[in-house]
Design a protein around this nucleic acid. Structure first.
Lengths: 151, 151, 151, 151
DNA sequence: GTGGTCTAGACCACA
DNA sequence: GTGGTCTAGACCACA
């Protein structure tokens, strides 16, 4: 499947998994009825503790995103799509609010902050207009090892 | 003095103190040579353990923001101003980068994110020019109980 | 592992630990990726409080020498080697500078000081080539009870 | 008189005073019978607490360097010269031993350390052969504010 | 099992 | 009065 994990970036591993599933569902990459990988299999692939994955999958079950189908595994629920879209929205909003609040409290004003945001976007989004063929896989914001870095 | 603490908001208390000092120095509220409150006094005022404050003050010493003057207390160093201005800049940038990166990875595009940022700013910074009468007391970013909230 | 502590020699215990880790990394004894002993284990072995060890390990984290791998422990970072080599160099230079400066200010001249240094080296490094039989067990610099003594 | 103090350099102020007196006696700058400044006067000049000076003067009395002459003040004893010469010797030796020991334990070898010592001497001792007249007062090791720096 | 945070309190050096 | 160090122990998140 498509999970990338960065232990030691501050965000708990199980949390990283939860977010990635939610984002995939919100985007439509993961659709209702689809099965997600078993904890044992995924644990092997990612070389992490199966307990950690169980924790993530259980969280997603308790939030109604996944449902256990006996003998088959965990599947994406019908309501997952709307749940995840909403979750994504509120998660991002929450985090943005926190950062903007802190930026304001640090003494920066709105104009300065907006300027920083614009500048950072330029760094984060590869030039869409003229992508050279070598460029295809080099979107810096996807660099594994920094996925979801928070600190 | 001017410290506000929110235990239980995820950010360690000592970390909250460290940031507030740095921001105050970056802003110019705290100036070179000034003594910061003694751990015992501040501990009493904030109703927390002096050790917690010591931890913050020591962090600031190790970063060159404060210097110990034996028998007198801790003073802001000469180099603190530039250190803190830089620290503030990189702290905010780092956090903004993380959130924007995550927002992009969640499937939102730059336009959508910018829209969220603008909307959030409207909520965070009450329009000072034409404050509606309902607005008077609702500056959310100053609510102490959520200062520096991160989770 | 290989830590030796001398409480009561003036140098704080946590400081002794910090230096020993840095020196071990600088020498290459501790390599990138290696886990250092857990605070609880080491606390037992050295018969000191785990908090004291935590303090040392945290200092090393804040300096980029160690990194937390959640649930596993603390590992030596990739950049630790260069950081520690540099730290060792500047630490020793700083201390040498202070002592030499003070020696000069005490009224001794360079020749006298150099003579002292040579004489002390003879005492500290037993002649390995032709060890006299009395010498066998008298390598003073390895006496644990004075490791890192400073006062 | 001739005292320079650096609060906040790690070495206690009273200790700085003790050393300066001892070194002055060892050098012959301060001679038997000479009176040293009263704590009240010196405290004013140095802008420090009189208690701190008393502590230094008392230490020197207890070591036989100073003696109280009622109604006149504190005078350098007859035996001070030999006491201080010896004290200077052992103080410097002790400190040198500590630093050299630590340098060896850090993994550096004798040759490397000797090289550092030589290099540092070049930085510390102004060129004696051709002192230009402007140079007279610029011996870097005397820079106040760094006198006796230890950390 | 691993650290991280916090409290409570002792003891010390220094001014 | 000021911090600095250390102990003892609680509670938590994470793997």
């Amino acid at each position: 499947m498509f999970f990338t994990i960065d232990p030691g970036n501050g965000v708990p591993i199980y949390e990283q998994l939860v977010r990635q599933v939610k984002f995939a569902v919100a985007e439509g990459t993961l659709k209702s009825g689809q099965l997600i990988p078993s904890s044992r299999l995924l644990a092997q692939q990612l070389a992490i503790n199966p307990n950690t994955i169980n924790r993530a999958w259980q969280r997603l079950q308790s939030e109604g995103v996944l449902i256990l189908i006996r003998g088959r595994g965990l599947a994406v629920t019908d309501s997952a799509s709307s749940i995840c879209a909403e979750a994504r929205q509120s998660l991002i909003e929450q985090r943005l609010t926190n950062v903007l609040t802190e930026a304001l409290q640090s003494g920066l004003d709105q104009a300065e902050i907006m300027q920083m945001v614009s500048r950072l976007f330029q760094k984060l989004t590869p030039n869409i207009v003229t992508p050279s063929s070598d460029d295809v896989n080099s979107t810096p914001q996807l660099r594994p090892g920094h996925y979801l870095a928070e600190s």
